[in-house]
């Protein structure tokens, strides 16, 4: 088992609505998607964003796109136009998530690395 950063097996985009940020994560292929489903749970994402996301994190699976969508409530210290944060629109949350380290099985293709 190898420890890899999420950026090696996925791409992602994040955006805002009110005080909520969603992060859509796309696995590079079917085998990476299986690993992501196992490793990147809502709880892990919530823990990863400790200090940035104050509300709950919900995970939705979109298997037809090898995707998972994380909806993070209370993520922008009030929301785009009320927040003092530099990333007030949450556009960097996807990048932040790509730091996450996961246990990848031997079958996972790390071509992106």
């Amino acid at each position: 088992m190898a420890l890899v950063q999420l950026r090696q097996v996925a791409q992602a985009r994040s955006g805002d609505k009110g005080n909520t940020v969603n992060i859509a994560v796309f696995a590079s292929d079917a085998s990476a998607y299986e690993v992501l489903i196992r490793e990147v749970t809502a709880e892990r994402v919530k823990a990863h964003f400790d200090g940035l996301v104050s509300g709950e994190v919900t995970r939705y699976l979109v298997p037809n796109l090898h995707a998972m969508n994380f909806v993070c409530r209370g993520a922008l210290s009030g929301g785009g136009s009320a927040s003092m944060r530099m990333d007030n629109l949450g556009k960097c949350y996807a990048a932040s998530l790509m730091r996450l380290e996961i246990e990848a099985g031997d079958s996972v293709n790390l071509s992106k690395s």
Binding site: G15, N22, A24, Y60, V62, N64
Partner: peptide, 27 residues
């Protein structure tokens, strides 16, 4: 595909005034 889920919450029920959109079968 990155745009497909942009600012979407529940991908099976994206509410719009004209229709509730389900993206889970999109190819």
């Amino acid at each position: 595909k990155e745009q497909l889920l942009y600012e979407i919450h529940d991908p099976s029920a994206y509410m719009t005034p004209d229709v509730v959109l389900d993206l889970t079968g999109v190819q």
